[in-house]
Structures are given as structure tokens and as C-alpha cells.
Simulated scan of single mutants.
Amino acid sequence: MPQNSDATSFSPMDTGHQGLWEGSGIRFTGYGHYFGSEEIHNESVENATTNAVEDRVIGGVGVRTRYRATDEETPVLMATRASRQALERAGVDASDIDLVVVSHWTDRNYVDEVGALTAAALGIKGPMAFEIAGSCAGYIQAVHTAAALLTSPAGYRRALVATTERVTRRVRPGSKGAMLVSDGAGACVMEATPGGASGLIDSVFHTDGSLAHMSVAGGEQGWVRSHPDLNDVALAHVRDAVEDLLARNKLTVDDIDWLIPHSGTEPLAKGIQHHLGADPGRVLTNLSFRGNVSSASIPTTVSELLERGVVAPGDLVLSPSIGGGVWCWGGLLYRI
């Protein structure tokens, strides 16, 4: 797609007094979602094998239904399905996309890049498409990255962000952890009109590799193992991200219409609500009926809530997340 000659028309942002993307004209114009085709209803948690660390991190699970993808439902297929829905709702064709950013970590390959393969499956050939691996915070990382490129001199004006995870392959079968996670994909279309009204107001994203031991996926099967203090460390970082976004935009949590976090686990979801002092009626997640879909949790939640009319265009939303056992974390402040 031809690059726009006014690509350098964005003015520098004063992040001490306003959102990083305020005035950039970046809007979310369409969302989509897709879940693995096998729906599983959780039985009593007592039937699952567990250990002391899992009990502390996961708690009572709090997931009623979860979804598992078949072997044919690959990360690329799921990302493609969610992306097509997002494109349709945005009213744009795949040929209108200048940039594709795909968040994915659960089926890592040495070659065959999920970002490029997703773009090709959509018929997008030529524009830059790439994959990131921020684990559960991958959606924040993808939107943050796409926004930076949409406001760069490269001239990109329309980006597709997709998240796609088969988390069920990263947990021990029959465990309490297996009752927590799901497979699925979420997507959104981001459009930038310099000088126009902004949907994306601000974002933060941080990393600290010294915290990588809080959650690791290793061994022959690549199953996730968590540190017992995971939730405590995660809550501290979520709080920091939220306080950072609120302070530099001169807002309080009461000014936010909806808090849509990546909740991850039941103890983490309850902790976020308690630590931030948010009205429980304004904290929205899909954890109880969709499970932990890792980086797809936030966009699938927004997509489904829009579809059901729970949230509406213009609503002010704050979405924090932690990922990879807290080695990365961040948040988004935006209007639907």
C-alpha cells in the first residue's frame, strides 16, 4: 500500500502531562475473537492433581468452561479467523493493511514465523508482518509496538494486531493448571489519522529479565511451572502500571468506565480488584467462562463485550497485564 506523505506530521508528546498517543489519531476500529472448538466443562477441582505451589498460585481455579483447539486449529488458523472478524467489523479489506503484529508464544518454532504466515493466510503479501512473544502481556506489547510504528515516518496508517495461543499444550494434563487455560485468538484493527480523535490514549510496557524465574515453560513437554510468589509480584507490577497510566493522564480509577485486565488466575483477578480499589461491577474479564487464553484474554474479552453490548464505543478502558512470569508487564489506556 502506498505510504502517506504526511507521515511525519505527528508532534512530540509530553508524557508527563498527557497520554503518549494523545493527538496521534490512533483508533481501534474493529475487534474479533475465536476459541478452540472443543468446549470443556470443569468438574470438581478435587478431581485434579495438584501441589502446594499450584494451589497457592491458581487457588480454586474459578473457570467453569474452557476451550481446546484441535490439531487442525493451529495458531495461524485461529489468528486468521479472529483477524477476519476484526477486519469485517472495521469495514476494511486485508489489502488495506500496512502492518501485521501477531502475539504468540505457546507453539514456538525455529522457523515459520506465525506473524508472516498469518498475514499470508489473509492474503497480505508485502507489508511488514512479524511475531512477538510477550506471553500473557503480548497484547499490550503488540498494541504498544503497532502504535509506535503507526506514528513513525514509515507511513503506516492501518495495522492488524492478532493474538493467538494454544495454552492447553503448555500445562500438565489432568492438573489443576489444565482446568485454568484455554486456546483461542483475538484481534483488532488499529487506524491512525494524524490530528483526528484518539482511541488509544496511552500505553506502558516494561521488562525485567531477572524475574523470568517466576514462571517458566521448560522440560521435554514444555509445561509451565510457577514460583509460589508469582501472584504477589504480579500484583505489584500491575499496580505500578495502572498508577503510572493514571498519574500521567491526571485520572483516578473512578474516572475509568471499565477495567479490563488480563486476570490470569482467580487469586490474581481478586487481587487486582482489591489492590486498585475498583468497583467490582466495572471490572470485566472472561476468565470464568473462557479460561486463561494468555495474550488473547484482553482482546477476546473486548470483542465479546462489544458484541453483547456490555461496552460501547467511547467508553474509557484501562487494561493492565503481566506476562512470562512477570518478566514483562504494562497497560493500555484507551477508548473503545
Results as ranks from 00 to 15, higher is better:
Met1Asn: 14
Met1Thr: 14
Asn4Ser: 14
Ser9Gly: 14
Pro12Asp: 11
Thr15Phe: 01
Gly16Met: 08
Trp21His: 05
Ile26Ser: 13
Tyr34Lys: 02
Phe35Met: 08
Ser37Met: 02
Ile40Thr: 07
Glu43His: 02
Ala48Phe: 08
Asp55Ile: 00
Tyr67Gln: 10
Thr74Ser: 13
Ala79Asp: 07
Gln85Lys: 15
Ala86Arg: 10
Ala90Pro: 12
Asp96Phe: 04
Asp96Gln: 06
Asp98Pro: 09
Val102Tyr: 05
Glu113Val: 13
Pro127Gln: 11
Met128Asn: 10
Ile132Leu: 15
Ile140Trp: 08
Ile140Asp: 12
Ala142Glu: 08
Val143Glu: 09
Ala148Cys: 04
Leu150Cys: 08
Pro153Phe: 00
Ala154Asp: 10
Ala154Ser: 12
Ala159Asn: 06
Glu165Ile: 03
Arg166Lys: 15
Thr168Pro: 04
Thr168Phe: 00
Ser175Phe: 02
Lys176Leu: 15
Ala178Leu: 02
Ala178Lys: 02
Leu180Glu: 11
Asp183Tyr: 02
Cys188Tyr: 00
Ala192Asp: 13
Ala192Gly: 12
Thr193Lys: 13
Ser198Gly: 09
Gly199Trp: 03
Asp202Cys: 10
Val204Gly: 08
Phe205Asn: 06
Gly209Phe: 04
Met214Pro: 02
Met214Thr: 03
Ser215His: 07
Ala217Ile: 05
Gly218Arg: 11
Gly219Phe: 05
Trp223Met: 05
Arg225Gln: 12
Ser226Arg: 11
Pro228Asp: 15
Pro228Thr: 14
Leu230Asp: 01
Leu235Arg: 11
Arg239Val: 13
Ala241Ser: 15
Leu246Lys: 01
Asn249Gly: 11
Lys250Asn: 15
Leu251Glu: 09
Asp254Val: 04
Asp255Ala: 13
Asp257Arg: 02
Pro261Cys: 01
His262Trp: 13
His275Met: 15
Leu276Gln: 06
Arg282Ala: 13
Val283Tyr: 09
Thr285Cys: 10
Ser288Cys: 07
Val293Cys: 15
Ser294Asp: 05
Ala296Ser: 13
Val302Ser: 08
Leu305Cys: 09
Leu305Arg: 12
Arg308Phe: 04
Pro313Ile: 00
Pro313Leu: 01
Pro320Ala: 09
Pro320Cys: 09
Gly324Trp: 06
Gly324Met: 11
Gly325Asp: 09
Val326Ala: 10
Trp327Tyr: 12
Cys328Gly: 11
Cys328Trp: 12
Tyr334His: 13
